[in-house]
Simulated scan of single mutants.
Amino acid sequence: MDKRKGARSAKDIPTEILHQLNAGEIETANLVEWLAVDQKLLLENLLQQNERLDYLKPILAKIDALKKQTVNTINEAIGTELYQLCKDNRDEDFLAVISFHKADLVRCWATYTIGKNEDVSIEETLDKIKYFAADKHFGVREICWMTVRPKIAQNLTQSIKILSKWTADEDENIRRFTTESTRPRGVWCAHLEELKQNPEKALAILEPLKTDPSRYVQDSVGNWLNDASKSEPEFVKKLCENWEKESPTKETVYIIKNALRTLNK
């Protein structure tokens, strides 16, 4: 990610920086910049730079048809329509362009070309999204799990089996993806009812991460269990008791504290 710290408010973003962001020349440095990018302008610049301006009108029509235009709904509309246009035109070259683009929001759009593809198995979907799960930019990592979450929900048992192997990955971003993508309640996404009622089904993911050295992963595991505590409090209490006995490390203690924060209120 860009080493710039970024402005604290949208009005403080220098004009030149905003121009570069909207031109797709640099990555956003923080959430303020991420929210400030004009995605329609970025899209137009991207298409113009790659001689795909014929894609612009149908994508803008999808955005205009949105009931509510937010950063996330616009992001999804662009990514979904780009997927459809590339599929209809067999435009593999442009799919590659957006997947490896220097602008993080463009890579966010690319994740939808995986999540919206119903022609591939859950195994292939997760295999393709893994590249984005390891992205150095926070925005891409957050969007990528959201794009494949519906398919994870439809193929929960198989997804957990695959993701449980990712818990041993050396990349903390990939390990975090395993819990963030399966959180029972999650953020900005539909709940996983099966895991709200039967959180034990995800133990193959949770158990290997109970002593994870990364605070980034620890927070996600704690949030996962805090989600579960709202529907299955006894499961979470019992699991935390077991972990406390089996693994009295500072990492596990931190996770347990987060996991029980709602129950301990």
Results as ranks from 00 to 15, higher is better:
S164G: 07
Q158G: 07
G186L: 02
K237T: 14
Q69D: 06
K67W: 03
I78F: 02
I143D: 13
E118A: 11
P150M: 15
Q154H: 12
D169I: 02
K245A: 04
R215G: 01
T28V: 01
R90Y: 12
W243R: 08
R4N: 12
F177R: 03
L195V: 01
S181G: 01
D104F: 12
K102F: 02
P184T: 00
T80L: 08
A110D: 04
E27S: 10
I205L: 15
D54H: 02
L47H: 14
K245S: 03
L41R: 12
L192W: 00
A228D: 05
D93F: 08
P150H: 15
I59A: 02
V236C: 04
Y216N: 06
S99W: 08
R4D: 13
K237P: 01
Q84A: 12
T28F: 01
D91P: 01
Q197I: 02
R215L: 10
D127V: 02
K165G: 04
G6N: 12
L46K: 07
A10G: 00
S220C: 06
R8Q: 11
C108M: 11
K116W: 08
I160S: 04
A23N: 05
P199Y: 03
R107C: 09
K57E: 13
E234Q: 06
D212K: 10
L46A: 12
E251T: 03
V37E: 05
E193Q: 04
S164N: 06
E118D: 10
L95C: 09
G139F: 04
E180G: 02
E118S: 09
D12K: 15
H137V: 12
N155K: 14
A7S: 10
N242D: 10
Q39N: 12
N173C: 08
R8K: 14
K130Y: 14
Q48W: 00
W188G: 09
K210T: 11
G6C: 12
D54G: 00
K265E: 04
E51I: 01
D2M: 07
R107A: 13
A65H: 11
T252R: 14
T252G: 15
S164T: 04
I17W: 12
W145A: 08
L31G: 03
A96S: 11
L260Q: 07
L43F: 10
T80I: 03
A168S: 14
I129P: 10
P150T: 11
A204M: 10
L105H: 02
L195F: 03
L203Q: 11
A259S: 13
T182P: 01
E246H: 00
E33W: 09
D91N: 02
T73I: 04
